[in-house]
């Protein structure tokens, strides 16, 4: 939100309802940024997991795998590592879907608010980056 440029006047009165819409919008835009950061982190993690799932196939079935649990590497059987990876992948995929949905819902509400605010204030308000 910025002050109006010098010399430009704003004839439209801001009502409490408008203010609440502006506030909600500024809240949502921050929330969406946050979601996107989280999503980027998760998709990074997903890349790692995908790579790992491929690599693990190449390992000998009888060999034990150093699997990091907490701060320690635990020697696990190949099969249980595969199960764990599948599980991790599932949890991650669910988290990502949930985040994507949240982003979509937030964006929809933002568009709604944008339409209402632009309809009232036109050039006097700027809601885009």
């Amino acid at each position: 939100m910025e002050l109006l440029p010098e010399g430009q006047t704003n004839k439209t009165e801001v009502s409490w309802e408008d203010q609440q819409r502006i506030n909600e919008f500024s809240k949502l835009i921050n929330r969406k940024d946050q979601f996107e950061v989280e999503l980027a982190e998760l998709s990074h993690e997903k890349d790692y997991l995908d790579d790992l799932s491929l690599e693990i196939e190449l390992l000998d079935d009888d060999e034990k795998v150093n699997y990091k649990l907490g701060d320690t590497f635990v020697l696990l059987r190949h099969s249980s590592v595969v199960t764990r990876l599948e599980n991790d992948n599932l949890v991650l995929a669910n988290k990502m879907t949930a985040l994507e949905n949240s982003i979509e819902v937030t964006q929809e509400r933002m568009n709604e608010l944008k339409n209402q605010l632009y309809a009232k204030f036109g050039q006097s308000i700027n809601l885009d980056r």
Binding site: M1, L3, T9, N10, V14, Q19, I22, N23, E24, S26
Partner: peptide, 24 residues
């Protein structure tokens, strides 16, 4: 933090409006 964000926005709009009112 979201609540504070909203209060900050209110105050920013207030400031802008008082300023514009003063120009007029």
């Amino acid at each position: 933090l979201e609540f504070l964000r909203e209060q900050i926005t209110t105050m920013e709009v207030n400031t802008a409006r008082v300023y514009n009112w003063d120009i007029t």
